[in-house]
Amino acid sequence: MNSPILQTTTRLMLPLLLMFSVIVLLRGHNEPGGGFIGGLIAASGLALHAMAFNPRETLALLHVNLETLLGVGLAMALLSGLIPLAMGEPFLQAMWHEFDIPLLGKLKVGTPLLFDVGVYIVVASITMIMVLTLAEE
């Protein structure tokens, strides 16, 4: 496809979609959202890019190999289970740590966040692998 309208819109839409996907990911712990849906939104933005330009340019845009990204995402999800196991808790037990950030307040970071980020990466990369496989043929 080679449509200037679609290409221009995509240039504007892609950063917005990616930002939106991260917001959906981060609000997901207590409100509707989460890693899976965030990953799908990110992938839909990238798929839009692949349609407007071509799959090869999308890959160049990413700088990382999709399969490696998939491995990293899986490793993060696994790590969120292994951390509690190493501390003597059951596998995948949620563990939290509170940080005090000056001026901004408190930030609670825990293994569920790590798991969700892992899911986000896995979903985004595997969906892109599927889309690009179908697009290449």
Partner: peptide, 16 residues
């Protein structure tokens, strides 16, 4: 749904 999403994507590629 997540599982059927993956399976369907695979089946489409396979049929292709």
């Amino acid at each position: 749904i997540v599982i059927s999403f993956g399976v369907t994507a695979f089946t489409i590629v396979l049929v292709h």
